[in-house]
């Protein structure tokens, strides 16, 4: 169909046009914000070594470029960036690109897994609550959803560690894979999944609650629509009516919220990755802040913003497919 291709093209073009100014804006804003943070990487390194003199610190600053005026530093950074060079991490003494490349797959995996978990369980819970509205399955899930909604993810994460790792011993509490064994095929996937489960749950819990409530409300609203009666008048089975006619309409508000939540999800990754010792960008960002490693931090922020922009475009595409009334502008 022409319409779908047109819409896809328009969304991709719009994203391509927006991505550059957005990212440059984010870089400049973050760069100036970071100037407000007390101390620099030289202070941190000096503090850690415990034997720094004023001369060695000055030499260090000169090597990293911290002795230059702020604007010169910004221009240097942007010039390097234009050549796709994110600079070197002063603390790890490695290229920022390499550090991020090591951590990016972990974060992507965790984000994708948490988002899928939030969507699957959120929509499922919401659907069950709508079907049994006012009866005990609805009440029971309402309580669970309220707990998920009002409890911070890291606390749920810690409690899940206490239950599943410490008491029951079912799932590992830390890391992203079993160290020291070589696995392949299904064993590898099963091993990774075991490590992925708890951090994903901790990250997803709040969003499961949000999507469950949204789906419940949307499903209940759809039930009163005329087209539901039209569908029933065709002699369709109630399950078919719910799945084909109600759910797709009810998913529209959910996808809108998913787009808005992607940034929050990345923010939540910092805490969850720390709790579970997950080697991702969230923890890298935290380490960069603590070490005043601004090159690294800017790199992480840059990539995170790119990630949010790209996934938002994907959500826009999904949205256009779910609701044909939306025309890309």
């Amino acid at each position: 169909m022409m319409g779908v291709l047109d819409r896809t093209g328009t969304i991709l073009r719009r994203t391509a046009i927006q991505v550059l100014p957005t990212m440059v804006g984010i870089i400049i804003l973050c760069f100036f914000l970071l100037q407000l943070v007390p101390g620099d990487v030289a202070d941190v390194l000096a503090g850690e070594s415990g034997s720094a003199t004023a001369e060695t610190m000055a030499a260090l600053r000169a090597r990293i470029g911290l002795d230059q005026p702020v604007l010169t530093q910004l221009v240097t950074y942007l010039t390097n960036l234009a050549q796709l060079d994110l600079g070197r991490s002063a603390r790890f003494n490695l290229p920022v690109t390499q550090l991020i490349a090591e951590r990016l797959p972990g974060t992507l995996l965790l984000m994708l897994s948490a988002l899928s978990m939030a969507l699957v369980f959120g929509v499922l819970f919401g659907w069950i609550m709508a079907v049994f509205a006012g009866r005990w399955p609805d009440r029971l899930l309402q309580v669970l959803v309220l707990v998920f909604y009002s409890t911070p993810g890291f606390w749920i994460g810690l409690m899940a560690i206490v239950l599943f790792s410490v008491k029951l011993g079912w799932l590992p509490s830390n890391g992203s894979m079993t160290v020291g064994v070589t696995l392949s095929g299904w064993d590898l996937i099963a091993d990774r999944a075991k490590y992925l489960l708890l951090p994903s749950l901790a990250m997803a819990s709040f969003f499961i609650a949000v999507y469950a409530r949204l789906t419940r409300a949307a499903m209940l609203e759809v039930q009163g629509q005329d087209f539901m009666r039209t569908a029933a008048a065709k002699g369709l089975h109630p399950a078919v009516i719910q799945f084909r006619h109600a759910l797709r309409n009810a998913l529209i508000p959910v996808t809108t919220m998913v787009g808005l939540h992607l940034g929050n999800l990345l923010g939540g990754a910092v805490v969850v990755e720390t709790v579970y010792g997950w080697p991702g960008m969230g923890r890298l960002a935290l380490e960069a802040v603590l070490g005043r490693d601004f090159n690294l931090l800017l790199g992480v922020l840059l990539l995170s913003s790119l990630l949010v922009i790209v996934t938002n475009a994907a959500i826009d595409l999904l949205h256009g497919w779910l609701d044909p009334r939306i025309e890309a502008h």
């Binding site: 008048a233 065709k234 002699g235 369709l236 309409n249 009334r325």
Partner: peptide
């Protein structure tokens, strides 16, 4: 739908928009 079918009043809302 097979032996008896129904036409509703409001054609704007009687069809599924998606």
């Amino acid at each position: 739908g097979k032996r008896i079918s129904l036409i509703l009043q409001e054609p704007m809302t009687a069809l599924n928009p998606v």
